[in-house]
Design a protein around this nucleic acid. Structure first.
Length: 600
RNA sequence: CGGGGAAUAGCUCAGCCUGGUAGAGCACUGCGUUCGGGACGCAGGGGCCGGAGGUUCGAAUCCUCUUUCCCCGACCA
C-alpha cells in the first residue's frame, strides 16, 4: 500500500506559529551584521561621513551613491516612521509615484529644458526619452488633473517617501549631498490661495513636530524659492557648524532667514558731508581691502571693493560690464545681485583689463565713464572712503560720491548680512549660525497647475486653476545631520528616537558564565516583550571591543551584565552621554529603561 | 565645467626623488595565552601597484594618454 501524501501543505504547517507576535526589533549581535572600522577612509571629509563609514552604516557604490547597510537602514526607517506618522496625523495621504518618468511631462512643464544637467535623462529600448525623477511635481499634477474635477474633492495633500536622483555637480559629504537619496515629498492642491496658506501653516507646524520628535536642534527660516518657484517658502535647518547654509536670526524676535534672503537694511541717518580731499596713494601688492586698510591704517569699514561682473545679453550676443560696489567688510550676495541686474557672471581678468585698463585688485568706480555702477546700500551712505584707483599698485583715499565720482546708477541691497546688522523687522540685531537644510516648504501657487492645465470646477461651475503647495524632507540627509549634531570622540550620539537600537546589553563573558548568560537572556526577553528595540551583544567579544562598537554606532542606553554586579543582584546601566555608570537592582532595570525611553 | 591633489592588500599608509624579486599597522584564517575599554604571541591567506601605451635588458618607480576619487567655486532635500 502506498503511503498517503498529506492533502495540502497547510495540514502540516503549524499555522498557530503565524499567530504568535513577530518581534523583528529584537536582535542578537551574533545574528546581526556589524562591520565597524577603526580608521575612517581617507576620502571622508566631514565627521558624519567618517562616522557613518566607520559605523558600517553606509558603503559607497559610486560617487554620491551608497548602499544602506543594516545599521544605517534601521536609522533611516526610524526617521521615515516618524515622518509618516506626523504626515498622516496632519491629514496628508501617502501614495508612491514612479522613479522613472516620461520626458513628455517634463517637456509640458518646461523643466525638460530648464532643469539642466542635474536631471538624469535616459532612453528606453524604443529610444523614448525618460528621466529619473529628481522631484515629482509633474507626476502628481498629472495624477490630480486626471482624477480631480470638482472643488468638492479639494483640498488634497498627497505625499510619498521615495528615492530621488539628482545628478549633482559635486556630490560630497557622503549621504548629505548624495545623488541618490530618500526624500519625503508632499504636494497639496487647493481651491484658493487662502486654503493653500492654511495648509502651509499646517505643514509648518507638522515639520516643527517632526524635527522635534526626531530630537534635533533645528530652526525654521524664511528662504529663497530657488528654481522650484512660487512665493512663500521656509527652510528647516538642523543647526551644525559644518552646515552649508548660513542663517541669520534675531534673538529678540521671531525673525529668521537664510542669509541668501535676509535683507540688509540701509544704514540709518544721512551720508556725512565730504571732509577729506581726494588723494592717490601707493599700495603696492595690496589687492585685498583687508591689506589696504591695514597699510593705510583705516578701518575696513572705510574701504570699498569693486566687483566686476558681466551681464550677458543673449539677444545681442554681447555682455554688459557692470561694477558692483560693496563695503570692504561685506560680501556679495549673488542671489540679491541677480535680482537687481539679472543673470550675470564674474568678469574674467582680461575683460577687466579691457574695460578699466587695470588689473583686478586695484579697480574702483572713479573715472569709469559710462560704465554702470551698482552700489550696495551701505556704500551709498559712505563718505571719505578708500577704493581702487584703476591703476596697478594704487588706491584712492577721501573719495566722495557727487564730488569725485558720480552717484551710483543703482543703490540696492546686494550684500550678505553680517552679525550685528539690524534685524529687518526692526526689533534687535542679527546673529548668524550655520545649518543643514533638511526640510523645505513652498507655496507653489499655480506655477505647475497652469503649465499642466490642472484645473477644477468651482461652486459656480467655472473652471479655475488649482493652487499648489509642496513640502520636502530629506530623510537620508537627516541621518547625516543628526550625526553632525550628535557625536563625540567615541562615535555617534543618536537621539533615542532614531538610534539603530534603543538599548544594548553587553554581557561580560556570555559564553563562560551561566549566570551572566541567564541574566542577559532574561533581560533581553523582558525588554523585547516590552517592545524595546534591544541589541544583545552575544558575540563573546572582548569587553573593550563591544563597548567601543556600541558607542560608535550610537546606542543611547547600555546595560552591562557581569558576574561582579550579579553577585550583588545588580546590573550596570550607562547612558551614552553619562560620565558615570550606575548600578541598579536586576528587577528594577526593565522599568527604569522603559521610563528612560518614554521620557526621550 | 574651471582650478588644486590623489590612486599600492578590505581600511590607514610607506616604497617612487636615485628603475633591479611588493612592505608595515589594522582587518581576516588557525593555534595558544588573555578577557570590565578596540589585547598579546606564533603560523597563515590576500595586491597584474586604477587602466592603456611608451622608454628600458628590466617599470609600482620615468614619459604620454585615459578612468576614477577627493578638495575649492556655480546647485539643492
Amino acid at each position: 500500500m502506498r503511503q498517503r501524501l498529506p492533502r495540502s501543505i497547510w495540514t502540516t504547517f503549524p499555522v498557530e506559529s503565524l499567530l504568535r507576535p513577530c518581534r523583528p526589533i529584537a536582535m542578537r549581535s551574533s545574528r546581526f551584521f556589524l562591520s565597524t572600522l577603526k580608521e575612517a577612509p581617507s576620502d571622508a571629509e566631514i565627521v558624519s561621513h567618517q562616522l557613518m563609514l566607520r559605523a558600517g552604516m553606509i558603503k559607497r557604490l559610486a560617487g554620491g551613491i551608497y548602499t544602506w547597510m543594516p545599521v544605517g537602514l534601521r536609522v533611516v526607517r526610524k526617521v521615515e516612521k516618524i515622518v509618516r506618522e506626523e504626515m498622516d496625523r496632519a491629514g496628508a495621504i501617502e501614495l508612491s509615484m514612479p522613479a522613472v518618468q516620461p520626458a513628455e511631462l517634463w517637456q509640458e512643464s518646461g523643466r525638460w529644458e530648464k532643469y539642466g544637467p542635474e536631471l538624469l535623462r535616459c532612453k528606453d529600448r524604443h529610444q523614448r526619452d525618460f528621466v529619473i525623477g529628481p522631484t515629482h511635481e509633474e507626476v502628481i499634477t498629472d495624477v490630480v488633473r486626471r482624477e480631480v474635477k470638482s472643488y468638492r474633492q479639494l483640498p488634497l495633500h498627497f505625499y510619498q517617501v521615495q528615492v530621488k536622483f539628482r545628478d549633482e555637480i559635486r556630490p560630497r559629504f557622503g549621504i548629505m549631498r548624495g545623488r541618490e537619496f530618500v526624500m519625503k515629498d508632499g504636494y497639496s492642491f487647493h481651491c484658493s490661495f487662502e486654503d493653500l496658506q492654511r495648509e502651509y501653516r499646517n505643514m509648518f507646524d507638522t515639520y516643527t513636530r517632526i524635527f522635534t520628535r526626531l530630537g534635533l536642534k533645528f530652526r525654521a527660516v524664511a528662504a529663497d524659492t530657488g528654481s522650484i518657484g512660487g512665493t512663500g517658502s521656509h527652510e528647516f535647518h538642523v543647526l551644525a557648524d559644518s552646515g552649508e547654509d548660513a542663517l541669520a536670526y534675531c534673538p529678540d524676535s521671531s525673525f529668521a532667514a537664510n542669509v541668501e534672503l535676509a535683507e540688509a537694511l540701509a544704514p540709518p541717518g544721512i551720508r556725512s558731508a565730504a571732509s577729506a580731499i581726494l588723494q592717490k596713494v601707493a599700495t603696492p601688492g595690496r589687492t585685498r581691502c583687508e591689506d589696504v586698510a591695514a597699510l593705510l591704517d583705516v578701518p575696513l569699514t572705510q574701504t570699498v571693493k569693486a566687483i566686476a561682473i558681466v551681464v550677458d545679453r543673449p539677444l545681442t550676443g554681447s555682455g554688459e560690464f557692470v561694477l558692483i560696489l560693496l563695503r570692504g567688510d561685506h560680501n556679495l550676495n549673488e542671489i540679491k545681485a541677480q535680482k537687481v541686474v539679472g543673470e550675470f557672471r564674474f568678469a574674467r581678468d582680461e575683460e577687466i583689463v579691457t574695460a578699466l585698463g587695470c588689473q583686478p585688485g586695484y579697480i574702483g568706480p572713479v573715472g569709469v565713464g559710462s560704465l554702470r555702477v551698482v552700489a550696495d546700500r551701505s556704500v551709498a551712505a559712505m563718505s571719505d572712503f578708500v577704493c581702487g584707483a584703476n591703476e596697478a599698485d594704487f588706491h584712492l583715499t577721501g573719495v566722495n560720491f557727487g564730488r569725485d565720482v558720480e552717484e551710483p546708477a543703482v543703490v540696492a541691497d546686494l550684500r550678505n548680512v553680517v552679525a550685528g546688522d539690524p534685524s529687518p523687522d526692526g526689533k534687535g540685531r542679527l546673529e548668524l549660525c550655520r545649518g543643514i537644510e533638511v526640510g523645505h516648504i513652498f507655496q507653489l501657487r499655480t506655477k505647475y497647475a497652469e503649465a499642466l492645465k490642472c484645473s477644477f470646477l468651482d461652486e459656480s461651475g467655472r473652471s479655475r486653476t488649482m493652487e499648489m503647495g509642496c513640502y520636502g524632507i530629506g530623510v537620508t540627509r537627516i541621518v547625516g545631520a543628526a550625526i553632525e549634531q550628535g557625536h563625540d570622540e567615541r562615535g555617534i550620539i543618536f537621539p533615542a528616537a532614531i538610534a539603530p537600537f534603543e538599548v544594548c546589553i553587553v554581557p561580560m563573558g556570555y559564553a563562560k558564565s551561566e549566570a551572566v548568560r541567564d541574566a542577559a537572556d532574561a533581560l533581553y526577553c523582558e525588554l523585547t516583550r516590552a517592545g524595546i528595540d534591544v541589541l544583545l551583544d552575544d558575540r563573546n567579544e572582548r569587553p573593550g571591543v563591544m563597548f567601543a562598537e556600541m558607542e560608535l554606532i550610537g546606542v543611547p542606553h547600555r546595560v552591562v551584565v557581569g558576574e561582579r554586579g550579579l553577585a550583588q543582584g545588580k546590573l550596570e546601566y550607562r547612558g551614552r552621554v553619562d560620565t558615570e555608570p550606575q548600578m541598579l537592582p536586576v528587577a528594577a532595570l526593565g522599568r527604569f529603561l522603559k521610563e528612560r525611553l518614554c521620557s526621550g
